[in-house]
Design a binder for these strands. Structure first.
Lengths: 146, 146
DNA sequence: CAAATATAATTGATATATCAATTATATAAA
DNA sequence: TTTATATAATTGATATATCAATTATATTTG
């Protein structure tokens, strides 16, 4: 069987792209905010917009599993960016709240992220973005529906 | 600043696609081979095609850093899929060789991987793949050259 | 209602990711 | 040739990824 090497496939290109973006974005965040990962930043952004998300829902939004999310939330609580409190309506799930310190950090994030997205998408047309989304969507569907 | 949520961006789509593909591919591998990760499989494929790769070069091909690669090679050595030996021409780098056991596993990999790629790219035209590659390439370049 | 099932979160074990520091060897420059 | 610099790999520390098992609480069903 003449199997192309992994490095010759589209998956390699996809992986390489998202990894470079993450490196790039992380570097720009680290230059302005100490001890903040991209994913922790994303969690703050999601919580800010949707304060009633529980851990499971946040996990899904940032592509983590529940176990990873538990530990990630732990470190964010340690850093006092968020706090956990029991949700009396359903004692299985926590209520996650952004602290004042978390809110301060949150203030500084949007311009950095905006800048990251802008630079990394420079020169790419709306139409190309649409194409990208459609094609990737097909691949994703193939993987989940098969 | 009205920043779109991360889940509304193209990066979310890219990340989601590659993660679903990895899940899908890992599931199909695990069904046939015990205790084998995608990345370990990729390392075997690369080594098979290019036997003179050192750890640093392999790392680059599978998007790991050197530290991760050291540990990954450790576990692959433990599992007796590969072995390390000193390279007399340059005693800083190891010679990595696939063992007979590694070769046996390697035999079973290509059909599985072929199947994974085929299914996940089903219904996607050559032209779409080209588009995908070009657009992602632009993003990647923006991230590395900025 | 009581038993069975489902859900959210945690924990343990092991692997991998990441950064900084270190070791050993090779190569370049004074 | 000695010194300085560069390279390949390792190690330590901490965070995250993943799977399986467990706990606590809710919900469904008989």
């Amino acid at each position: 069987m003449n199997l192309p090497l992994p490095s010759e496939t589209i998956f390699h290109v996809i992986e390489s792209t998202i990894k470079e973006y993450r490196k790039f974005a992380q570097k720009n965040i680290s230059e302005q905010i100490q001890d903040m990962t991209i994913d922790q930043g994303l969690v703050l952004l999601f919580l800010n917009k949707h304060p009633n998300l529980n851990q499971k829902e946040i996990a899904e939004l940032v592509f983590k599993d529940n176990a990873s999310m538990t530990r990630m939330i732990n470190t964010m609580v340690q850093k006092k960016h968020i706090k956990r409190s029991i949700n009396p309506k359903d004692r299985r799930r926590y209520k996650i709240e952004i602290t004042n310190k978390g809110k301060e950090v949150l203030e500084t994030l949007p311009p950095i992220i905006h800048h990251n997205r802008n630079l990394s998408l420079k020169g790419i047309t709306k139409n190309e973005l649409n194409q990208l989304e459609i094609i990737l969507g097909k691949i994703r569907t193939n993987c989940t529906k098969t």
